[in-house]
């Protein structure tokens, strides 16, 4: 009986931990499958904003808008909720789009002034898995022509380079939060790779900080 009691106690604690994780809307980080690596892809025709949204020319002077791969890798499974309706206008820096993961959200800000023309109905309640393709979020008509390049909007190699920088920054951010500052360079590569969706396992404050620092 004692033996059974001890085993059941052990299992009980494990079960409680799983429930606690669930209640917090987090996922056991060990179960995240993929390692967050530095290999990013960015379509050549698109423009990337420093708020991790991309714009790509469609017809009639409209631009498709979506989130980049970095966000997907940092947050893991998520779906998108537009904060504006069709026809509304939006000015640069205003909240335009929300990513929902678990029971938490982060908010993206509009990269340009313009008006919303069309929302992608296909992404409602659907997990994003092709961020540059089918899973774009909305069509926007910018007020002004987009600059070829600026500090806020990047193209091609510039965009990829910037994503790398963001990755490094993110890695430092995570290791600081994970509480092993002097291990930063080491931990993360040595079996301690940050995993995709790593952000999910942090608390709300950290998510907030992430929002402030990265979006």
């Amino acid at each position: 009986m004692v033996a059974l009691f001890v085993v059941l106690t052990f299992l009980f604690f494990i079960l409680i931990d799983l429930l606690v994780l669930k209640a917090q809307g987090k996922e056991h980080p060990a179960f995240a499958v993929r390692v967050f690596d530095k290999r990013f892809f960015f379509p050549t025709e698109a423009i990337l904003s420093t708020g991790h949204l991309w714009l790509q020319k469609a017809q009639n002077g409209l631009y498709k808008l979506g989130i980049d791969e970095f966000i997907l890798k940092a947050l893991g499974k998520l779906h998108l909720v537009p904060l504006k309706t069709e026809g509304e206008s939006v000015s640069k820096g205003e909240p335009i789009l929300q990513a929902v993961f678990g029971n938490r959200t982060i908010t993206f800000r509009a990269p340009v002034d313009g008006s919303i023309r069309f929302l992608n109905k296909n992404i409602i309640q659907k997990q994003v898995d092709d961020p540059y393709g089918d899973d774009w979020a909305l069509l926007i008509e910018p007020k002004n022509d987009l600059p070829v390049s600026s500090a806020f909007l990047k193209r091609g190699n510039d965009a990829i380079k910037w994503l790398h920088d963001e990755f490094n920054r993110f890695r430092d951010f995570i290791s600081a939060k994970a509480g092993q500052p002097e291990l930063a360079g080491v931990t993360l590569q040595d079996g301690g790779n940050i995993v995709e969706g790593v952000l999910r396992s942090f608390d709300d404050n950290t998510i907030k900080e992430f929002e402030e620092q990265f979006l």
């Binding site: 931990d17 060990a30 390692v35 931990t187 301690g192 940050i194």
Partner: peptide, 17 residues
């Protein structure tokens, strides 16, 4: 223990090993 550490330190696990 690797899973526990992954849980505690938000790190990955050496799944293949």
């Amino acid at each position: 223990e690797a899973y526990l550490s992954a849980r505690a330190f938000n790190k990955g696990i050496e799944a293949d090993l």
